[in-house]
Computed example of a mutant assay.
Amino acid sequence: MVVERRLYFLFGLLLGLGFAPASAQLVHPKASPAQTIIQDVGLCQVQVSYSRPAVRGRQIFGNLVPYGRIWRVGANESTKIKFSCPVRIAGNKVPAGTYALYAFPQEDLWEIAIHKDTTHWGDGRQNYSPQDDLLRFTTYPQTRTTVTENFQIGFDQITHEGMDMYWRWDRLELRFAIEVDTQAEMEKQIATALQNNPTAQTYYEAARYLQESDRDYSRALGYLDQALELGGDTYYFHRVRSLVLAALGRYEEAVAAAGKSLKLAEAEGKDEFVRMNQKNIEKWNKLKD
């Protein structure tokens, strides 16, 4: 009996000191799984971390997500968006950094908030302060014919200068533009690179950027001529040169450049470039007449 009393005493002492027998803790899957997406745009990167609730037969907007009240743009924690460089949203400057995304849905229009305080759980409710909004802007939801079961954030219409961010859930889609100033940064890089022993590839990359940006074709042509002079004939130098000449309306020269690219690509087994050049030659031959 004495031994038993001593054991009970020791057990109670251990509990009092915070030592308890180990117990199994379940790690269960979340009903609204987390996702992080990363998208490069121009020279910037945008990262979004959010959770993806499902429709599961429920009425979503105006019910599960009430109109006229703050929404966390997903589930669980607040949705975070991170910009690696300054951007513009709805004409407003947004410095590089991490922000919380909130929405204020209405039936016909939504307010979107880029919020500086990222510490709130979910939508913050009473702790949320509009004074911590970096900006708010309005956008208009559209109705889609297909259902998106799990809430989805994504990007499309991506160019060197920006992209659309879209949200889809149930039959609703909402989107807005994110703009980046790639041109200013690229012009700085081009100027610096051309002052420091530029190679054929340097000139080619500068020309390719201008061609893909649909601007300054005469300068791009000069860079390509320099690339050919320094680096010799390559199928990709001549291909971009053909595209630049066509953009300048010089279709006969564009056909000749595409012909050179085709032969060089054929010799290297680059079938896709052979086909692309053939298609362009056919198109430009009609335009030059």
Score class of each variant (00 low, 15 high):
Glu111Lys: 14
Thr36Tyr: 12
Gln183Asp: 14
Pro105Phe: 02
His115Lys: 02
Gly62Ser: 06
Gly162Met: 07
Ala24Ser: 13
Gly122Cys: 03
Gly122Ile: 00
Arg56Pro: 10
Arg58Ser: 04
Asn285Thr: 15
Phe273Gln: 11
Gln157Val: 05
Val2His: 13
Gly222Leu: 00
Tyr204Lys: 07
Val94Ser: 09
Phe61Glu: 03
Glu212Ala: 10
Tyr99Cys: 01
Tyr204Ile: 09
Asn76Ala: 05
Lys279Pro: 09
Ala193Val: 13
Glu282Leu: 12
Val147Trp: 06
Leu109Gln: 13
Glu107Pro: 06
Gln142Gly: 09
Arg208Val: 00
Phe176Lys: 07
Pro130Glu: 06
Glu179Pro: 10
Lys263Gln: 15
Thr146Arg: 15
Glu229Lys: 14
Phe273Ser: 12
Trp284Ile: 09
Tyr140Pro: 07
Ile178Asp: 04
Val87Pro: 01
Gly68Asn: 09
Phe104Lys: 00
His28Thr: 15
Thr79Ala: 08
Glu107Trp: 07
Tyr67Met: 05
Val46His: 02
Gly62Trp: 11
Lys188Ser: 12
Ala220Tyr: 04
Asp132Gly: 05
Met165Trp: 07
Tyr166Thr: 04
Gln142Trp: 05
Ala256Val: 05
Ser129Thr: 07
Gly222Trp: 00
Thr98Ser: 00
Ile38Lys: 14
Glu272Ile: 02
Glu266Gly: 03
Ile70Val: 03
Lys30Gly: 06
Ser23Pro: 05
Thr119Gly: 00
Met163Ile: 03
Gly222Tyr: 00
Trp110Lys: 05
Arg52Glu: 10
Ala22Glu: 13
Tyr223Gln: 02
His28Asp: 13
Gln189Trp: 07
Ala31Thr: 13
Ser218His: 09
Phe104Met: 03
Arg144Lys: 14
Leu194Trp: 04
Leu43Gly: 08
Gly162Asp: 04
Thr145Asp: 12
Asn196Arg: 14
Ala20Asn: 10
Leu262Phe: 13
Arg250Lys: 15
Asp40Tyr: 07
Leu224Ser: 04
Asp117Pro: 00
Trp71Arg: 02
Val274Gln: 09
Met163Ser: 11
Ala177Tyr: 12
Ala113Leu: 03
Met165Tyr: 08
Thr148His: 02
Ile37Ser: 09
Ala20Ile: 15
Glu173Tyr: 08
His238Gly: 02
Ala207Met: 06
Leu134Ile: 01
Ala258Pro: 10
Arg52Leu: 04
Tyr67Thr: 03
Val240Glu: 13
Trp284Leu: 05
Ala177Arg: 03
Leu172Met: 12
Leu245Thr: 01
Arg239Met: 14
Gln195Tyr: 03
Leu43Met: 14
Ala257Phe: 04
Glu268Leu: 15
Ala200Cys: 10
Arg6Pro: 05
Arg5Glu: 14
Leu245Gly: 05
Gly154Leu: 14
His28Gly: 10
Arg56Asp: 15
Glu173Lys: 15
Asp156His: 14
Lys270Glu: 14
Phe104Leu: 04
Glu212Tyr: 10
Asp170Ser: 04
Asp170Gln: 04
Leu243Trp: 08
Ile89Val: 07
Ser84Glu: 07
Ser23Phe: 08
Gln25Ser: 12
Leu228Lys: 15
Leu17Pro: 08
Gly57Asp: 10
Ser78His: 06
Val244His: 01
